[in-house]
Amino acid sequence: MKQVVAVTINGEAHELAVEPYRSLLDMLRNEAGLTGTKKGCDVGDCGACTVLLNGRPVNSCLVLALEVNGGDVVTIEGIQSGPDRLHPLQENMMKFGGSQCGFCSPGIIVMAKALLDENPNPTEDEIRFALAGNICRCTGYTKIIEAVAATAKQLSSGKEITP
């Protein structure tokens, strides 16, 4: 039987009715209409479904929807700095070529944001460590790492970085 989940998603209060066996991922995609969060494996191995739950990055496929009752969720659709302003991570993922097929990009961007929130000046190794759970099959990671490093530099210096 469906139960109601009261949850804040991207700053907006929602009440969504879901079955107890639904994942947060399915709730976001099917009930909240937020399909930016992707299902690449559904068992926590690929990171495409990464969202911030109460500020922390998690695989939304491994969270039951009912568990987030009263919680706060941020998805790729809520990462932007303003309605018409992209987050610098989004800008740099485009500019540096960190997004090819794009299926992993939402998870990568959310994970990278979580990293930069916690550690504004990560080393390359720290970026690689943070992204270990996000599979990208297109880029070889080089350009993703560059995009995240450039964003860190940009956020701390206030200057735009070009490839």
Binding site: Q90, M94, S99
Partner: peptide, 20 residues
């Protein structure tokens, strides 16, 4: 290296894939 025509949707989560 112009701005690609497809990536804005990909980095904002608005790009629609068949399963979406």
């Amino acid at each position: 290296s112009v701005k690609r025509v497809d990536t804005l949707g990909k980095v904002t989560g608005l790009a629609r894939y068949a399963g979406d």
